[in-house]
């Protein structure tokens, strides 16, 4: 393959932000166009370099082509939008019915969410998957929260000499739990960011909301305290926040243009965070509201910074092209489902 074509296709791929199978289909298809076009132009008397230059110019700027391809492929069906909304509604349902206190129903909900996540991951990571992944990570956050008192006890005993030091095995277990949870959350985030930072933001958005909820409950006496009126009020606020996130997810899947997806996600989730903050901490003034919104905005935009650092695609350029070439044989006769 000529370096000019390879460089063009690399740039198209780096701006596609679609699932790997679709990206490969698109790049291969554009490559077949170049092959046909260059052959024809050469047959008409142009040199190879002239023909390549003309074919590339005729196709248009790679960023524009990538944007058009993204818009052609990124809009999900109504069913996909409903599936992406579903985990938010399941969690909202747990809060409305207060079944999150019931270990059986809470476990059933999370096991179902993890099963759907694994299925979607195995089926090529469709765009409806990412809210499900986010909720699958929640038990890790909650596990870390539950294990944190052991660390606090150890630190208190070590630095201030108050209380007894927990057993070494308990401490090691807690450190392993927190370490592995962090590793899973970070590595999953990086993998998702490599595809598209917006999907990582969509995935991570429940985590700060649940984190703030855990902190607020801690101040009110802990997660497993009795159900008081204020806790009921919090449950309703949390349910409303998750329903709002569900609407944001469904809208995200249905929108075609990337800029609208980013706008909808940032706006709705920031409003949801501000509303949750207001519900948790009462009337905390304009600046409190502004600070909560800004924090959420920074959190949602942080995957974009990670993407700028680590780049796009699960494989480097060279490795991707090697696997792409091998894949050509597999493409014939069995189109991959997208």
């Amino acid at each position: 393959m000529l370096p000019e074509i390879r460089s063009y296709l690399d740039e198209v791929r780096s701006h596609l932000h679609l699932d790997p199978a679709t990206e490969m289909q698109i790049v291969r298809e554009v490559y077949t166009y170049f092959r046909d076009s260059v052959d024809e132009l050469q047959a008409n008397g142009l040199s190879e370099s002239e023909a390549t230059k003309a074919a590339i110019e005729s196709f248009g700027r790679p960023r524009v082509v990538a944007r058009r391809m993204y818009e052609a492929r990124s809009k999900g069906s109504e069913i996909e939008a409903a599936i992406s909304c579903l985990p938010h509604l399941i969690i909202a349902g747990l809060f409305i019915s207060q079944l999150w206190r019931n270990p059986f129903w809470a476990s059933i909900a999370f096991v179902s969410i993890v099963c759907v996540t694994l299925y979607g991951w195995w089926r090529g990571k469709p765009s409806w998957l990412y809210p499900w992944v986010g909720y699958s990570l929640l038990p890790l956050l909650i596990g870390g929260y539950a294990a944190a008192p052991v660390l606090g006890q150890a630190a208190s005993s070590l630095f201030w000499g108050s209380g007894s030091f927990p057993s070494v095995w308990a401490l090691l277990l807690v450190l392993a739990l927190i370490g592995s949870s962090l590793w899973i959350i970070v590595s999953t985030t990086i993998r998702v960011v490599r595809r598209d930072w917006i999907l990582a933001s969509l995935m991570l958005v429940p985590l700060p909301i649940v984190g703030a909820w855990l902190l607020d409950l801690e101040q009110a006496g802990g997660v497993f305290q009795g159900a008081t009126a204020s806790v009921h009020q919090l449950d309703m606020s949390m349910a409303l926040a998750f329903i709002t996130l569900g609407v944001a997810s469904a809208t995200f899947v249905r929108l075609r243009q990337r800029v609208l997806k980013v706008g909808a996600l940032l706006m709705v989730c920031t409003i949801a965070a501000a509303a949750i903050g207001h519900s948790f901490w009462g009337d905390y003034g304009f600046f409190g509201l502004l600070a909560t919104s800004l924090l959420m905005l920074v959190f949602l935009l942080s995957p974009a910074l990670i993407e700028a650092k680590i780049g796009h695609g699960e494989q480097s350029g060279e490795a991707w092209w090697e696997s792409s070439m091998r894949w050509e044989e597999a493409l014939v006769g069995h189109d991959r489902p997208v």
């Binding site: 698109i26 166009y33 076009s37 196709f59 248009g60 700027r61 524009v64 082509v65 058009r68 052609a72």
Partner: peptide, 15 residues
């Protein structure tokens, strides 16, 4: 037709 228009249109129709 511009190639950069036709291929995205084909993908949109497929989607």
């Amino acid at each position: 037709f511009k190639e950069g228009t036709v291929y995205p249109a084909l993908h949109r129709l497929e989607n």
